[in-house]
Design a protein around this nucleic acid. Structure first.
Length: 472
RNA sequence: GCCGAGGUGACGGAAUCUGGUUACGUACUCGCCUGCAGAGCGAGUCAUGUGGGUUCAAAUCCCACCCUCGGCUCCA
């Protein structure tokens, strides 16, 4: 088997993927700050890691996938204040909506969600160790990480400390260096606070992730992911925190970052007001359409959000499902495979292999998809030529489509073989009679009418057939 | 200013690391099939940001430049 290769932001290279502990893989992905609804930009990232997780497991890795939920944070407090709500309560409400989004997106790979508010002891413990080791200091306002003590600060974002110093402006005379970041914030007024050796307060920006990661994954683990906007300062700070405590480098073996979702050339962001919430998008498009749309671009590249692109994904899905239907319908129990069928059987095997190679090459989903399209084409060709297909080969094809599609989360819908109501059946028969007497007007009227009811009629050499219109 | 990510037909997008006919898909055009349509099949049209260099050969390597987006304040 070829090695899996992963692009590592830290080394800026694709590397052979070698987990620290054999087949066990530990992955941490930065989750949401639950202060508002999630939009498609978030969906892009979460779906990308869902696909990565599915592929790792499919490939036989024993993956443990951890995601944090930030439920204590400046933004939450600010928003709650405006809405005159309790911050933790409000956070729980947005968290509920986040889980609804995750479910609607068919994301099912995450093993454990960890809340910042539920890891205060672990957070305090990490800060204590940083202070003991001289990497952190206490001021009037809280506890800060002293970046001058950590010589690797800047290594992930490839920034020199001087550069960072120049532009990080956060006037706080208590801090030793301008770019020192907060580990613990002492309470100011009404806000959630916990007891700590440094007084009542709450965790800083980056500490929850390392506290959770250490608890569930250990001081060193395999993959840490998130959007590209987290590289600095968030992930940089995490490295500083964990590696200063443990003295072990690297904290994370492979840093993986997803590209942005853009709208008319700009990053989709709350602050720009150009966002579409996940639920709104799902009103117009089926989740499989969204997932195919995202899978059509490499996770690392920016995606331009286009109606056109979604329409394309939609059509592609329709056509793939149509092929599945055609294959099912054409299946006949025949003993021997014909030459073309044997060739198609070999093609299945071949395309499975090439699909795997594409996914192994830094999760190249757009390339992997082409091997599904190729099988789609060949299936139709065979049906066109023979008019039917050996049922065992048909089963093999359908299983392959479902299995490979399952990596992206497409082609998972079961075909519902429901009966048509009698009156509709009667209409179809009436149309057949109209066609026999070449009364095309009546025939077309009936066909159009049925389409309004979501029933598509197709006249074939084997007679008329109907199908329920699928909505994507 | 510093650090990234990008720039490939009408559109999406792969190949760039590892140089060897710009894959694949959508749209469009034509043909087959069909009363028509749909689905399907076949054929076709259209692209490597610019300028140099290396090479038998460059989307790919080297140099210079242009453009877009992002990070450096909260961000997926």
């Amino acid at each position: 088997m070829n090695p899996l290769r992963v692009y590592n932001t830290y080394t800026r290279k694709k590397e052979d993927f070698k987990p620290i502990d054999g087949k066990r893989v530990k992955m941490f992905v930065c989750g949401p700050t639950v202060y508002d609804l999630s939009h498609l930009g978030h969906a892009r990232t979460y779906i990308a890691y869902d696909i990565i997780a599915r592929w790792l497991r499919y490939r036989g890795y024993d993956l443990f996938y951890l995601m944090n939920i930030t439920d204590v944070d400046d933004k939450i407090i600010e928003r709650a204040k405006k809405r005159r709500e309790d911050p933790l309560k409000m956070a729980r409400e947005f968290e509920r909506l986040f889980f609804r989004d995750i479910r609607s997106l068919n994301i099912d790979t995450i093993d454990l969600y960890a809340h910042a508010s539920e890891h205060i002891p672990e957070i305090i413990d990490q800060i204590r160790r940083m202070i003991e080791k001289g990497f952190a200091y206490v001021t009037q306002t809280g506890v800060y990480f002293d970046v001058s003590k950590f010589e690797d600060y800047g290594k992930l974002s490839h920034q020199k400390p001087e550069e960072l110093r120049r532009h990080r402006i956060e006037p706080d005379p208590n801090k030793r260096n301008l770019q020192d970041f907060s580990l613990w914030k002492k309470r100011k007024g009404e806000e959630p606070a916990w007891d700590s050796p440094w007084g009542k307060g709450r965790p800083g920006w980056h500490i929850e992730d390392t506290a959770m990661a250490e608890k569930y994954l250990g001081q060193q683990y395999d993959i840490h992911g998130g959007g590209a906007d987290l590289i600095f300062p968030h992930h940089e700070a995490e490295i500083a925190q964990m590696e200063s405590i443990s003295g072990k480098k690297p904290m994370t073996k492979y840093w993986v970052h997803t590209g942005f979702l853009k709208v008319k050339g700009k990053k989709m962001a709350k602050s720009l007001g150009n966002f579409i919430t996940i639920q709104d998008a799902l009103k117009d498009y089926d989740v499989e359409t969204l997932r195919l749309f995202f899978s059509s671009t490499h996770y690392h590249s920016p995606i331009n959000f286009h109606e056109k692109g979604l329409e394309q994904a939609k059509r592609t899905l329709e056509s793939l499902y149509a092929t599945l239907d055609n294959v099912r319908r054409g299946a006949r129990s025949l003993k021997e495979l014909k030459d073309d069928e044997r060739a198609l059987k070999r093609k299945i095997k071949e395309n499975r292999r090439r699909f795997g190679e594409a996914m192994d090459d830094d999760f190249n989903t757009p390339l992997a998809l082409t091997y599904i399209y190729d099988l789609d084409k060949d299936s139709n060709k065979l049906l066109d030529k023979q008019g039917n297909i050996n049922d065992r080969l048909a089963d093999d094809l359908i299983a392959t489509f479902k299995e490979l599609g399952g990596i992206f989360g497409i082609l998972q819908k079961e075909r519902v073989e429901e009966e048509l109501p009698e009156d509709l059946k009667a209409l179809i028969e009436e149309r057949e009679r109209a066609r026999e007497r070449k009364d095309w007007r009546t025939a077309d009227e009936i066909r159009n009418w049925l389409e309004e009811f979501g029933v598509i009629l197709e006249d074939t050499s084997q007679g008329v057939r109907w199908k329920k219109k699928r909505q994507f």
